[in-house]
Amino acid sequence: HEITLHINGRRVKLRFRDEKAAEILKEAAKKGLDEEELKKLAEELWR
């Protein structure tokens, strides 16, 4: 699955395995994680 989040006016595509991962990524984006941090988090969730 993929999700596209808008971060600092940019579109960031993240891959994720399940809905739980999608929710975690959305929450992290709301908390203000930047693009690099979100990509790292997405990679961690993928494993």
Rank of each mutant, 00 (worst) to 15 (best):
A29G: 06
E36V: 13
D18M: 03
E23V: 11
R47C: 08
G32N: 06
A42R: 01
V12M: 05
A28Q: 07
R10M: 09
D34A: 11
L33N: 06
A22P: 05
A28E: 06
H6R: 10
R47D: 10
G32C: 05
K13S: 09
N8W: 02
K31H: 14
I3S: 01
K13A: 06
L33Q: 08
K30R: 14
E23L: 12
E2T: 14
V12L: 12
A29L: 09
G9N: 05
L33F: 14
W46V: 02
D34S: 15
E23A: 12
R47K: 13
I24R: 08
I7P: 03
L41V: 04
K40E: 12
H6K: 08
E27D: 12
R15Q: 06
E44D: 12
K31V: 09
K20R: 14
L33T: 07
L38M: 12
K31A: 14
A22M: 13
G32K: 04
E35I: 15
E19L: 11
A42W: 04
K39N: 08
R17S: 05
I7Q: 02
V12H: 02
E44Y: 15
K26Q: 10
E23K: 10
L33M: 15
D34H: 10
A21S: 15
L38V: 09
D18W: 05
I24G: 03
A28M: 09
L5F: 09
L25Q: 00
I7M: 06
D18Q: 04
G9E: 03
K20S: 12
E2W: 15
D34C: 09
K30E: 12
G9L: 01
A22E: 08
L45E: 01
R15L: 06
E19K: 09
A22L: 15
A21P: 02
H6E: 14
K39R: 13
K31R: 14
R15F: 08
L45I: 05
L41Q: 01
L45D: 01
E43T: 07
G32L: 06
L5C: 05
A42S: 07
K39Q: 11
E37F: 11
K39M: 14
K13M: 07
E2P: 02
E36D: 13
A22I: 10
K40N: 11
L38D: 00
K13Y: 06
R17P: 05
A29P: 01
R10Q: 09
D34Y: 06
R10S: 07
L45R: 01
N8Y: 04
E43C: 07
D18H: 06
A21H: 15
L38A: 02
E35N: 05
K20M: 12
I3H: 02
A42G: 05
T4G: 03
K26P: 00
E27L: 13
A29F: 13
K39C: 06
N8D: 08
L25R: 00
L45A: 02
A42N: 04
G9F: 00
L41A: 02
A21G: 10
L38P: 00
K26Y: 12
L25Y: 04
H1S: 10
R11E: 10
R10K: 15
L41N: 00
E27P: 00
E23W: 09
G32T: 04
L14M: 05
A29R: 04
K40L: 13
E37W: 07
E2S: 09
T4C: 10
I7F: 05
R17G: 03
E44V: 13
E44S: 09
L45G: 01
G9V: 01
H1T: 08
A28I: 04
L25I: 11
K13W: 03
L41C: 04
A29H: 12
K20C: 07
L14E: 00
H1I: 12
D18T: 14
L14W: 01
E23I: 12
W46P: 00
K39L: 14
K20Y: 11
L25D: 00
R11V: 15
R10A: 06
E36T: 13
K31E: 13
L41E: 01
A21F: 05
K39T: 13
A29N: 05
R47I: 14
